[in-house]
Amino acid sequence: MDLALLRTFVTVHRAGSFTRAATLLGLSQPTVTSQIRTLERQLGRPLFLRQARGVIPTTIGDELAHKAAPYLDALVEIAEGGLDDEFSSRTLHLAGPPEFTAERALPVLTGLTGEDGQGLALRVSFGTAEEVLEGLAAGRHDLAISTARPRGTLLTANPLCDEEHVLIAAPRWAERIDTGTLHLKGAPALERLPLIEVHESLPFVSRYWASVFDARPTASGTVIVPDLRAVLACAVAGAGLAVLPRYLCVPGLERGEIMTLHNPPVPPLRTYFLVARTGTLALPHIARAHEYLQGAAVGWD
């Protein structure tokens, strides 16, 4: 059996689409279709059922993928293993949310670039969870950091870390809030106070209100700015209350520029996932970056 045909088959199985597989393989869509038909003729069995949007594997297709994929991935690892000595010539394309990627991921990965500039080269893109996963699936990125776990077999996700969210404000606002009243009344004690958020839908505030107070915010945002670091700057300047990841707030809390308004027994958490296309962790530069990030995340609070 032709290994090229098997490679195309496994890629289609993971991608769920001839078109997407063609992009990942650098082939035309008709070529991928022809190769799958050739393999189906050789086996005498259909491997996929065609649908309006993509394909789904038959039982035979699933069985073949389960048997063949580990061996094909191992062959890629053997073939690419010799590239480890040429690590400096490799470029890693990373995508993720701007604040987390800038504050946490990039300081770790710069350790792979080398002091003399002869290490791994980095190319970074920012986007929403949907955008970075779509780009990863399409082959535009090598690794993605996402707050959503992808479905299907094309992408493989590993939990990276949990992010704690805290309710903060500048001292002048904190002084106006009675902690006892907040503890007893919950969200109503914060009504009429200005809110700073990244979007009109108040995603961070809404998640915090639902998790901690079992309520929805009744006010709209006073300041809406699509960057968590800008939200923090506005909070430090006294524009109002904000819900932010604790790691972003630590320096401001230590300097007394902002204060934590509430300390619930179970703080709201958000999980980040480190995602790669299935099989690509056989490539040394992707595997090393993946390992660096997973190792560093152990010490992230």
Rank of each mutant, 00 (worst) to 15 (best):
R192K: 10
A297W: 00
A74H: 13
L122P: 10
Q35E: 08
T218F: 03
R176A: 13
L228S: 09
A68S: 12
T11Q: 14
L39F: 12
L3F: 10
G295D: 08
A144G: 08
A230F: 00
E200Y: 04
L27T: 03
I224F: 02
R229S: 12
F9H: 10
L261N: 06
V32H: 12
G238I: 09
R90Q: 15
A22C: 09
F18Q: 11
H290F: 15
G135L: 07
G117I: 07
L283T: 13
R50N: 06
S220W: 06
G16C: 03
A121Q: 15
A169Y: 02
A148L: 15
D73S: 07
E254G: 02
R50D: 03
Y247L: 09
V76K: 07
L122T: 10
R20P: 00
P194D: 11
T19W: 00
D214T: 06
P98S: 15
P226D: 10
T38D: 10
I196F: 03
T101A: 11
F126T: 08
V124N: 02
R90N: 06
R20E: 11
L232K: 08
T31Y: 05
R277Q: 14
H285Y: 15
P268M: 12
E200C: 01
T222V: 03
R140Q: 13
I60Y: 03
A138M: 06
P98D: 13
R229I: 05
L202V: 09
L167N: 07
G252C: 15
G61P: 09
L120S: 01
A148G: 02
A174H: 09
E103D: 12
L154P: 00
V32S: 10
D227N: 14
H66W: 06
T59P: 02
V236D: 01
T59E: 13
T260C: 11
R90F: 07
F273T: 00
L92I: 11
R151G: 15
G299S: 13
R20N: 04
E40M: 06
A219P: 00
D301I: 02
F87P: 01
G256D: 08
A215R: 12
P284A: 09
L94R: 08
N263I: 02
T38E: 11
L232N: 03
L120G: 01
L109G: 00
T179N: 03
A79I: 05
L94V: 15
T8Q: 02
V198W: 00
A235V: 12
A129K: 00
A289K: 07
Q51K: 10
T278K: 11
V12Q: 00
W300H: 11
L269Y: 03
G16P: 01
H93L: 15
E103S: 12
I177R: 05
R288M: 10
V223D: 05
L244D: 04
A237L: 08
L25V: 07
G82Y: 07
G111C: 04
V198H: 00
T271K: 13
P267M: 07
V243S: 04
E257G: 04
L269E: 05
A276F: 03
